[in-house]
């Protein structure tokens, strides 16, 4: 069991609105609901999942196993921002290993990925992000960064960014 957490009251209010909208809609709206809930809460804890399960009328274990299956859903704390670096062949040929190294160094995490100790940023090595013509490529949350150079990483991921 992951540790209990407390949502802020604006988060609670936003979550309630989402659940209200999806109430009784069933499994066909599970993925949209999870996406929206996670956009508010950052990651999906057991209490939030329980509420989603009740609202949609979907078994608890289904909510859990779906989050476990899809890499963009999190049931553990993650950084407030997520940087996804593509390391598949076209990006690899264009030097993605250097990008991964620069990100890991900047955040003080392993080159396989991880969350900075201040909880600010999570680094993920992500499967092909479909921007092969802009290799090497990374995303910071929803923002695309193509033809990225190792020297840009401190600016992209630094404290002020």
């Amino acid at each position: 069991m992951t540790a209990a957490r407390t949502l802020t009251s604006p988060q609670m209010a936003a979550l309630r609105q989402i659940l209200q909208r999806y109430r009784g809609q069933g499994g066909a709206y599970l993925l949209p609901c999870l996406h929206e809930a996670q956009a508010v809460t950052g990651w999906l804890d057991a209490d939030t999942c329980t509420e989603i399960s009740r609202a949609l009328n979907v078994p608890l274990v289904q909510v859990h196993e779906v989050i476990e299956f899809y890499t963009l859903f999190y049931n553990e704390p993650v950084g407030r921002r997520i940087v996804r670096v593509c390391d598949d062949p076209p990006c690899f040929l264009a030097g993605s290993s250097e990008i991964v190294r620069a990100c890991a160094r900047q955040l003080g995490v392993d080159e396989k990925g991880g969350t900075s100790s201040d909880g600010r940023v999570t680094l993920e090595i992500h499967p092909c992000l479909g921007r092969c013509e802009q290799a090497p490529f990374l995303m910071i949350d929803d923002d695309a960064h193509g033809h990225v150079q190792p020297a840009q990483i401190p600016d992209l991921l630094g404290e002020g960014a």
Binding site: A46, P59, L60, V61, E65
Partner: peptide, 21 residues
């Protein structure tokens, strides 16, 4: 009853309960 489901995927798939309760 829906007590059992899965964790992970691929080789790392496991039979699991809700949040491993």
């Amino acid at each position: 009853t829906y007590a059992l489901g899965f964790n992970g995927r691929g080789f790392h798939t496991e039979i699991a309960t809700f949040f491993d309760a």
